[in-house]
Design a protein around this nucleic acid. Sequence first.
DNA 1: TTGAAAGCGCTACCAG
DNA 2: CTGGTAGCGCTTTCAA
Lengths: 350, 350
Amino acid sequence: MAVTLADVAVRAGVSAATVSRVLNGNYPVAGATRNRVLRAVEELEYVVNGPASALAAATSDLVGVLVNDIADPFFGIMAGAVQSEIGEPTAERGGPKLAVVCNTGGSPERELTFLTLLQRQRAAAVVLTGGALEDDAHRVALTGRLGRLESAGARVVLCGRPPLADTDFPAVTFDNREGARRITEHLLTLGHRRLGYLAGPQARTTTRHRLEGHRAALAAAGLAGDAARLTVRGDYGRSAGYAGAVELLAREPELTAIVAANDTVALGACAALRDRGVRIPEDVSVTGFDDLPFAVDATPALTTVRLPLHEAGVRAGKLALGREEPPADGVVTCGGELMVRDSTAPPRDA
Amino acid sequence: MAVTLADVAVRAGVSAATVSRVLNGNYPVAGATRNRVLRAVEELEYVVNGPASALAAATSDLVGVLVNDIADPFFGIMAGAVQSEIGEPTAERGGPKLAVVCNTGGSPERELTFLTLLQRQRAAAVVLTGGALEDDAHRVALTGRLGRLESAGARVVLCGRPPLADTDFPAVTFDNREGARRITEHLLTLGHRRLGYLAGPQARTTTRHRLEGHRAALAAAGLAGDAARLTVRGDYGRSAGYAGAVELLAREPELTAIVAANDTVALGACAALRDRGVRIPEDVSVTGFDDLPFAVDATPALTTVRLPLHEAGVRAGKLALGREEPPADGVVTCGGELMVRDSTAPPRDA
DNA sequence: TTGAAAGCGCTACCAG
DNA sequence: CTGGTAGCGCTTTCAA
């Protein structure tokens, strides 16, 4: 079998307890002893047995990160940020943590399943990223699972979704409502009057908040009447954006602007417009959320709302490790103000 | 503390051993007993203690997936595929495995560090994705680490990189060389004669193979002379593509085509061209590798070589779990033939 | 500052 | 088919 603590102890001529203390560095150990142990570790190529250590210490150095779609750079950026933050050795206790990125695919059942698996691993923390499902049954189930995780000693952090009712898990949030309101207001200021909206999947917090902001801006301009007709729902994928744009044009050929619930959807919409010979942004202006770098590189005419994904991930990582105390209300609003990257054109008949 | 196996055993009126058997399902247990145990598990909301189980069984249900850049959908797609494959309960042993996605950021040191962390967790398998670094010192270090992992009982699978010398780890590979050769040949057939090449980072297998294929096609057409002058190196990011395209245009203003080492680089190149008023594909045709869906949606004029990322991930997952036996030579070439998605224009003076 | 020893919760072997 | 039980390798009191 593999080299164990005991082997190292023998080689260094000390007890197992001492080796453990050296490795964890939480106890005073004489310099000479310490060096002897470290040398033995090197020579034997000793690697700690994580499970054994987790069992004895009743906690592991795994941090679960749940994402809705791992192939979406939106989540990739946040997950990468979380990992880079928790990967740094903590002062207080233990070495670097390992991020376990779990891809729920947006499925509520898988979300719960992963949480169970993470609890089974005795994860030190769990970060739930991206919009949450707004469904009572699921909310109750989720609250239960997270509660059990917490009482098993895991920290729970929400990132990119609002606080969970009846809990006090810290949440790192984006101001989706205001961002959507501002971008629509911006389009209205330019003179657009027939705006289509490509909403995200049903019953998601991000979908609802962004849609609310959009509607609020329309209402303020007295354009609420057409809102429902010019809203198409779909998931957060590009094909939904493609199909949605086609549908919007069918409903309103005189459309001059499209607001999409995220960049991926916006890109799909751009593809549809081009396939139909519509020029962007001269004929129709397209805007999205997220500000994924390649999206605007590929389509410079695409205007997006910048969400500070990386920053959110880092903050979530800090909260997950207890390196940062959450504010009294538990909500960290990330990025302060949303930025609108501006390359939008006025409508052709303005 | 949390509910333990013993608690369940008491509640169900059986021994701990029996509960363990029911939970692992590898042993015959009477139907009635079984039900009683399962009911007790439900009532007590029992969750297996992973570390304890891993310690006793000397193996965990974690599978490590190393990626070079988690924010790049190229890796997201593969990692997602691996996870969906290993997430299904195995017939032979144990429930669903949990994928640990580790973001190396392309750093060789971090690659080694993560492997140590995974060994510490007693990972059941490790999948290394994406191009490998071609550096002797690192290769030796990597071989050593992987060897130790293997002798600790972990399966090792390479995905998107060639087999590792002096080892027999199975490898799922793409035919990068032939793909690059074909796409360049394709451009030559259309009449292009001044082709720029945006190569990936130094000393990566993917970079070298793709460049070799490109050069082979040029050589076959008697155009090898200009190859070195019209090759610019950079990393696999979009800004490298942007800068690279600018550099290429400076070196050769009469350029009619650019081949990029991947889609992300190609998108950066497209952005640069547009910023300089160059039309795509009328003035310059841009091609890339990977065939990331949003890339071609955003830029329909972009032609790419399709790599079957999802399929590769699934195959890697199967190999990692031993659900599929590797062929005799250990190499699974994925996708058979590379496809060129065709929307390339002939050069303006053809 | 160090050692001895008692578990942590589970698996798997050996009886029955 | 089921129970008893000896560890798995580490952490952490409690003494020395």
